[in-house]
């Protein structure tokens, strides 16, 4: 039996979280380097085709824990069910998305065993001499990066940020073996009861999942002007972010706030419009792949972290940018 790398295949309402596929794609690289077998572990009601999707992204084997009680995340049930399986199979590595669920489940599981857990990684590598996972993450609000290892305890576990790895399907599925695991959720039954589950956030605020984020700052000028920010985001199929100054001014809801006291985001492209680039704002977005800054002040600190800087009036540049994108899309769309 060869050693294994597991990816926790988080699902909500029967749909797989995209980060699980990103982790499988990156997991293929780690499996190649380590010689370990890449597997996924799925907790769900069991009435879904998710395993097929996991095979397509590189899982050679899927452990499935199917039970109506596991349809939606409940830490009291998920953590013991997962830990019992981990204890039995003892994989070398377990990776989770750094989502609300992953960041609750993983530390619980880590304590059930004596496992190290690195939080919110943005880089993974495998040291083939020591046979350990190298886990790199930002800390101190993104001011520093730390590489963390776990030499003497197993499994080595990490939560990994969404959108840092690209997801790429294989031409042919990597496997087809579904291991049906008997579910043992321990003794807590219905200690935690979910009374209600409400989806209230509009699509343009799903800052964690968005590939593109268009953010507005005080330079937007007034609440009505956020319209041009929304329009650009919509054209890019992205989400709308905001600086705290605009949230405090009541121009936009706090769900949109990016930064130290708002959300930490890591989209492929972050477009800061009329944002000066205070350290607390940078803390929430500076690990984005590509940063674009639009600001009329050429000395604004946001330009220090921007791959592309556009000095000028956002009220002219943003609508023009939206118009041109619409134009190319119109051309390629038919």
């Amino acid at each position: 039996m060869s050693a294994e790398i597991w990816v926790f295949a988080e699902q909500r309402r029967g749909a797989l979280a995209p980060v699980a596929l990103e982790l499988l794609t990156e997991g293929r690289v780690l499996a190649e380097k380590s010689g370990y077998t890449l597997c996924a572990v799925l907790l769900s009601a069991g009435d879904d085709d998710i395993p097929q999707e996991l095979f397509r992204y590189g899982a050679e084997k899927v452990y499935r824990l199917a039970d109506p009680a596991l349809a939606e995340f409940n830490n009291d049930l998920y953590a013991p069910a997962l830990w019992n399986l981990i204890e039995k199979e003892m994989p070398e590595i377990v990776l989770y998305g750094a989502t609300a669920v992953g960041r609750t489940l993983a530390p619980t599981v880590a304590v059930m065993g004596y496992a190290g857990l690195t939080a919110d990684c943005t880089e993974l590598d495998f040291d083939t001499e020591k046979n350990i996972l190298l886990q790199t993450r930002p800390a101190f609000g993104g001011n520093i990066m730390a590489t963390i290892t776990c030499e003497n305890h197993r499994p080595q576990m990490a939560t990994v940020r969404a959108n840092v790895f690209k997801k790429e399907p294989l031409e042919n599925p990597a496997g087809d073996e579904v291991v049906e695991v008997p579910v043992d959720t321990g003794g807590h039954g219905d200690r935690m009861k979910r009374v209600e589950s409400v989806q209230e956030v509009a699509e343009d605020v799903d800052l964690n999942a968005a590939q593109f984020i268009v953010s507005g700052g005080r330079g937007v000028g007034k609440p009505e002007n956020f319209k041009i920010i929304h329009e650009l985001a919509e054209e890019l199929e992205g989400a709308v972010g905001a600086s705290r100054a605009t949230v405090d001014a009541g121009w936009i809801s706090h769900h949109h706030q990016v930064g130290q006291t708002g959300k930490t985001v890591c989209p492929v492209v972050y477009i800061a419009c009329g944002i000066s680039g205070a350290i607390q704002h940078l803390a929430g977005m500076q690990s984005s792949d590509v940063i674009i800054a639009i600001n009329k002040d050429p000395n604004a600190p946001i330009f220090d972290v921007a791959d592309f800087g556009l000095v000028g009036d956002l009220h002219e540049i943003v609508p023009e940018f939206t118009r041109q994108i619409r134009e190319i899309k119109g051309r390629s769309g038919n």
Binding site: N75, A119, P138, F140, G141
Partner: peptide, 15 residues
């Protein structure tokens, strides 16, 4: 805001 892990709460609760 320094360690930024959000792991201590769930860890203590589990213990």
């Amino acid at each position: 805001v320094d360690g930024d892990t959000a792991q201590v709460g769930p860890g203590v609760a589990r213990y």
